[in-house]
Simulated scan of single mutants.
Amino acid sequence: MEYQAKYITDDIKLSCYEDKLFKSEIMFDHHMLIWFLSGETKIVQADATYVFRKGDIFLIPRNQLATIINYPKDGQPHKTVVMHLSTARLRDFYAHLHVKPKAQAVQSIRRFDNHPLLESCLASLVPYFDMKNLPDNIASLKITEAISILRAIDPGIDDVLANFEMPGKIDLVSYMEKNFMFNMPLEKFGYLTGRSITTFKRDFKRAFGTTPQRWLTRKRLELAHYHLAQKQRRPVEVYFETGFENLSHFSYAFKKHFGYPPTALGAAHHKG
């Protein structure tokens, strides 16, 4: 068995990976509150890398690009309780509160490790995963409780949770230079830079003089080359984090671009 997800509701799930490793490129449509039961996760973003383990609690804000690599650890599967804080639910929560969130240029992952209030709230969900039917109002109460706790322990959380704005039109060049390693559909890149897919492609051609796909492949290969040559990492460690789906496609594209396989760089270092 590789992956199991048990849902209490659409917004609350128990996620379990027993395979060696699971990787995904994600842009979350909702904020996600995650509590680690076992295993390990590495989250790679453009400007930071995070590692989370058993007992950790963290919030990933929506519209974040990330490469997420999940591992089993110490003979235990990768197991988490995940709560989605959807825009619809947050709008309801904040409807009667007079909160004016400050606009934030960058919303980063927030850690709440070993916080007793949050931990007890999330731990109380675990028995419900074995029930056939859970009344909707109980799940709703649990999410409201989690939001209330977050507001009590993090003074800046309203700036994240009460911000319902869509991504605005931003500078395409700086955004793409920062986020090219995330293997996202072009539509998602368009959305995150405040453009339709047609406008995105047109603006991209004007800015970079080539198609998004050609440019993205070249940038990812150059980054991979840097990791292999300068950081002396192995191809199997690099292709995930530079936006390639699998090792064979990465090796083929690398050899086509540079004229030698990625393993040649590792071999040169190991000889020396």
Rank of each mutant, 00 (worst) to 15 (best):
A146Y: 08
K6E: 04
N70M: 14
L141H: 06
P127M: 07
P61T: 08
Y7I: 02
R202W: 01
K13C: 15
M83A: 10
L172S: 03
H115I: 03
D74C: 13
G243D: 10
A229Y: 00
T144H: 08
T49N: 09
Y252M: 14
Q4F: 02
S124P: 06
H269I: 03
P72K: 12
A123N: 12
E241M: 02
D159I: 13
L37A: 04
H96Y: 05
A146S: 15
N137T: 12
N163G: 01
F189W: 09
F240G: 12
H249I: 15
R202N: 12
V173K: 14
T144G: 06
K42S: 11
A139T: 08
I69S: 13
F250K: 10
K219Y: 02
V126Q: 10
S248M: 09
Y94E: 06
F208A: 08
R110E: 10
L118A: 07
E177H: 08
A162Y: 05
Q4A: 09
I138S: 03
F258E: 00
T67A: 08
T193H: 03
P135S: 10
E177A: 07
M184W: 00
Y71W: 11
M184E: 12
V99G: 02
R220E: 00
H257N: 05
I60H: 06
M27E: 09
D154N: 12
V82K: 10
I43G: 03
I157C: 04
